[in-house]
Write a protein that binds this DNA or RNA. Structure first.
Length: 665
RNA sequence: GCCGGUGUAGCUCAGUUGGUUAGAGCACGCGGCUCAUAUCCGCGGAGUCCGGGGUUCAAGUCCCUGCACCGGCACCA
């Protein structure tokens, strides 16, 4: 059995994890779960990076012992990871003894190789930045970033001979093209290597918060040098040779693109110096922005992933992040887009598929299927091809393509239902066998799709599998599970929709501050009332995008009277009406709304003859954005009741009929 | 200033090692179905792949160049 050891970057504990941090963990978790599904013995490491001066200062500010502060943050982080269903096998903190032992061991080896030397550094040092500043960078003698005076520091420093490893690194990159992916990152580092490497300082003098440098306990190991070593110390470097031999080298470091040079240049050089094997691969993922804006604490453009998980469950968020963002590239999150994908991918396609096959199986076969394996038509072939694509993509870390491959099965199953028309088969007793097989084939497609989606949506995929009567067995393995099974017996469970459609809650209230620049997207449905609508008029700096105020729960949320009053309903008199040519149910109306005449288009032709409408008094939405229907611009909307499956019925008024222009409310 | 990114359908984006009529989802229009969460299926319209050079039998894809937009040089994924 092959082993797979993967890690994510360890996180600073200055603040709670946000969507960007969660993105990294979620995608790494998908990889980890995929490897387990493949049958690899997998070790997935995460952790917290605690030896930072910022952490120390933050703790002091709060009047806490730094370690106590870190303890508290650890609980917060773990809670977030739990909610997001992150299945790490180990969680390391850099304040743990095992890490200290690892750092000590590695530093000693590097020192022994002659790659640590003592030097001095002096200059302006900004404590907040934890970095030295050039004289020219100062503004009025202050740190340009923190607007506070830096300190002049002359300190003894220990340097690592990074420059010595320039050529070995170049050679390594040449010999192992897969060492750093995607290619953009690799090219970046190659350019860096070509331009030369300078030795780097690896210690800080006069600080207590950190791990003492073995050769000079008056200094502590610089936080970056310290942090990188977690990957090795977590699996026993310096504490457990057996375990270390078992897991090292790591197969994959998943990191953010901003820290590639530390991982792809500094870290391998450190390992080379110490004579330790290099990790096999480093993946530098992109960043997730929020509505096109970089997430920033100071701008308040932070999205709390727990929020999204609390509202819809972790799985929809996971699917969105994995499927909608090309892994390696930057991506964007917005609530509109999230809700769109939720409705399309989950409610309409996958969820509805599970639901319809369950309903049909229940109705036609009492929930039981016994299939002999006669046919599956193209469905089986499509599914198996998708499985192959999925594996190829997932192996190559193209997670978004893996998700897309799984969805090809979902699409094929919906098409298959349309082609085979089980409801037609059900009317002909001679087709009984075919019907059973057809339904079975669909459940089989669901089983395969859900199996492939297990790494991405662990809990809902397991639920889908239960519904099609194939609960996840212990130690499920892909090579066996992802094979099409032409025959079998299963009990299918009818149940509530897994993902109820998110219906809009507010009317499309003609947001007047929107200069209609976004084109005439007139949807029949109203847009959900989401955060950014509330945001828009406010000054950009002060608005937390974190949607805490009005959680958009699925279901009937009530609106305020103010919200309702945004909709201007008016009495209108129909002056002229004609059926729109080539349309089935559209009528073009000329109406008097009191202040003016309007042209609007209504979908009521199957209930009303155009001529019969002339002279009638109707209710219209006056302040609706214009929309084009069949080439005609409609400036408003006629109110009508739309009974289930029936024809629309116009809203009418009691006598005496009010004059056009009267407000309705 | 330094570094980097992006520019492909109305919108959001895919486009593997350059290789047939450039794709998806959403939106829009038309049609079909009724098992299903008003869901699903089919068809359709619409792109100077930012501009200009170049390499090549062949370029959205490689090279040069111009333009536009954006980001980082705080913390951070």
């Amino acid at each position: 059995m092959s082993r797979f050891y993967l890690t994510t970057a360890i996180d600073y504990v200055n603040s709670r994890p946000h969507l960007g941090t969660a993105y990294e963990k979620i995608t790494a978790d998908v990889i980890a779960r995929y490897r387990r599904l493949r049958g690899d013995e997998t070790h997935f490491l995460m952790g917290n990076d605690e030896h930072s001066q910022n952490v120390y200062r933050r703790a002091v500010e709060l009047g806490l012992d730094p370690l106590a502060y870190c303890d508290r943050m650890e609980q917060e982080f773990r809670e977030v990871w739990r909610k997001l269903d992150i299945s790490f096998d180990d969680f390391i903190r850099t304040t743990e003894p095992r890490h200290r032992a690892g750092v000590t061991a590695l530093a000693e080896r590097i020192a022994k190789a002659g790659d640590l030397y003592e030097g001095h550094y002096e200059g302006w040092y900004c404590v907040s930045c934890e970095a030295f500043k050039q004289e020219k960078d100062l503004v009025d003698g202050n740190c340009p970033v923190h607007l506070r005076p830096p300190e002049w520091i002359r300190e003894k420093n220990h340097f690592f001979r990074l420059s010595k490893y320039r050529q070995p690194l170049i050679d390594h990159f040449a010999a192992h093209p897969e060492f750093l992916v995607p290619d953009v990152r690799r090219n970046e580092i190659l350019r860096l290597l070509e331009s030369g490497l300078e030795d780097i300082s690896v210690s800080r003098a006069g600080q207590s918060w950190g791990i003492p440098l073995p050769s000079d306990p008056s200094s502590v190991v610089y936080v970056w040098f310290d942090a990188l070593i977690n990957y090795a110390s977590a699996v026993g470097l310096g504490t457990d040779a057996g375990q270390f031999a078992r897991w090292w080298p790591a197969d994959l470091h998943v990191i953010g693109k901003d820290i590639t040079r530390f991982h792809a240049a500094v870290w391998p050089a450190m390992l080379m110096s110490a004579g330790v094997a290099l990790p096999r691969q480093i993946f530098g993922h992109g960043f997730v922005s929020l509505k096109g804006q970089k997430m920033s604490k100071s701008l308040g453009t932070i999205l709390d992933p727990v929020d999204a998980a609390d509202r819809f469950g972790a799985d929809p968020l996971r699917l969105y992040l994995v499927k909608e963002i090309a892994y390696g590239a930057d991506g964007d999150f917005s609530w509109e887009r999230f809700e769109e994908r939720y409705n399309v991918d989950l409610a309409n396609n996958l969820g509805n598929l599970v639901n319809r096959v369950a309903a049909m199986t229940d109705r036609y076969r009492g929930g039981r299927l016994r299939a002999s394996g006669a046919t599956a038509g193209r469905l089986a072939a499509t599914a198996e091809a998708a499985v192959a694509d999925y594996r190829r993509s997932m192996d190559a870390l193209a997670l978004h393509e893996g998700a897309a491959a799984a969805y090809r099965i979902v699409d094929a199953a919906n098409e298959f239902i349309a082609e085979t028309e089980p409801w037609t088969l059900a009317r002909d007793p001679a087709q009984a066998g075919r019907l059973t097989q057809t339904l079975y084939d669909v459940t089989e497609a669901v089983r395969l799709a859900a199996t492939l989606l297990l790494p991405i949506m662990p809990s809902s995929s397991a639920q889908m599998l239960r519904r099609v009567g194939e609960p996840v067995p212990e130690g499920l393995e892909l090579h066996d599970a992802a094979r099409w099974r032409p025959a079998g017996e299963r009990v299918v469970a009818k149940a509530d929709p897994l993902w109820p459609r998110l219906e809009p809650k507010a009317p499309p209230a003609a947001a007047p501050e929107e200069p209609a620049a976004k084109a005439a997207h007139s949807t029949r449905r109203a847009k959900p009332m989401s955060e950014e609508q509330k945001d828009q008029p406010a000054p950009p700096a002060a608005l937390p995008v974190t949607p805490t105020a009005t959680p958009a729960q699925a279901g009937g949320e009530r609106i305020s009277i103010d919200e309702f009053m945004k909709v201007e309903l008016r009495v209108a008199k129909v002056l002229a009406a004609e059926k729109v040519p080539n349309s089935k149910k559209l009528v073009k109306l000329q109406v008097d709304v009191g202040t003016e005449q309007r042209t609007l288009v209504a979908g009521i032709a199957d209930a009303y003859e155009a001529e019969s409408l002339v002279g009638r008094t109707v209710a219209v939405v006056f302040n609706l954005k214009p929309a084009k229907l069949m080439g005609i611009e409609s400036n408003g909307m006629v109110l009508a009741a739309s009974p289930e499956g029936g024809k629309p019925a116009l809203v009418t008024f009691d006598e005496p009929v009010p004059p056009p222009g009267s407000r309705v409310r």
